[in-house]
Amino acid sequence: MKDETWIFAITTGFLVLVSPAYWFITGDWTGTSALTMATLLVLMISLYLGFHASKMEPRPEDRKDAEIADGAGELGFFPPYSWWPLWCGLTLAICVLGVVFGWWLFILGAALGIIALSGWVFEFYRGEHAH
């Protein structure tokens, strides 16, 4: 995690230099505000990673004496194929079109979206991939 901390800290330093330079060169408040917010967000991430890197034991990729076999083992659960993201995306498209064409279509899209999102959240509780 220390490598990630350094990457974000260097990015924070870069944005600290670029943000005022952008304002002096262009005088644009919108871009300066966006760069300032990006600076603060990257600073927040680097502080978070820095605090947690000091409290965690080093991962195999953080140690100089680590072997390839040290990183072996289960990495986590990766879900198989799923149709639910497609239905969630389609209901989002219906909601956006509902804002354009009429609120009745938005309400229909929101109702279908609740069903699609519930299916996506609970897909591993029933059916073929149940745990």
Rank of each mutant, 00 (worst) to 15 (best):
F8N: 11
A9T: 06
A9P: 00
T11D: 03
T12W: 06
F14I: 13
L15N: 10
L15D: 06
V16Q: 12
V16P: 01
L17S: 12
S19E: 07
S19V: 01
S19Y: 01
Y22V: 04
W23K: 07
W23T: 11
G27R: 00
W29N: 09
G31V: 00
T32Y: 00
L35G: 07
L35Y: 02
L35Q: 01
T36N: 01
M37C: 06
A38Y: 04
A38R: 01
L40V: 10
L40S: 13
L41K: 13
V42H: 08
V42R: 00
M44S: 15
M44K: 09
I45C: 10
S46W: 05
S46I: 03
L47R: 08
Y48V: 10
G50E: 00
H52Q: 15
A53V: 05
S54H: 07
E57H: 05
R59L: 10
P60G: 05
P60W: 06
D62F: 03
R63K: 10
K64C: 06
K64M: 11
K64F: 14
D65W: 01
A66K: 08
A66L: 03
I68T: 13
A69L: 04
A69H: 08
G71Q: 04
G71W: 01
A72S: 14
A72G: 11
G73K: 02
G73Y: 03
E74L: 03
L75C: 03
L75A: 08
G76T: 04
P80M: 06
Y81T: 06
S82N: 13
P85G: 07
W87K: 05
W87C: 13
C88D: 15
G89K: 08
G89A: 09
L92Y: 11
L92K: 06
I94P: 05
L97P: 03
V99M: 12
V100M: 06
V100W: 05
G102S: 04
W103Q: 14
W103T: 15
W104H: 15
F106S: 15
L108P: 04
A110C: 04
L112K: 02
L112W: 04
I114G: 14
I114A: 14
L117W: 09
S118T: 07
V121H: 10
V121T: 15
F122L: 13
Y125L: 07
R126S: 11
R126Q: 07
G127C: 11
G127H: 10
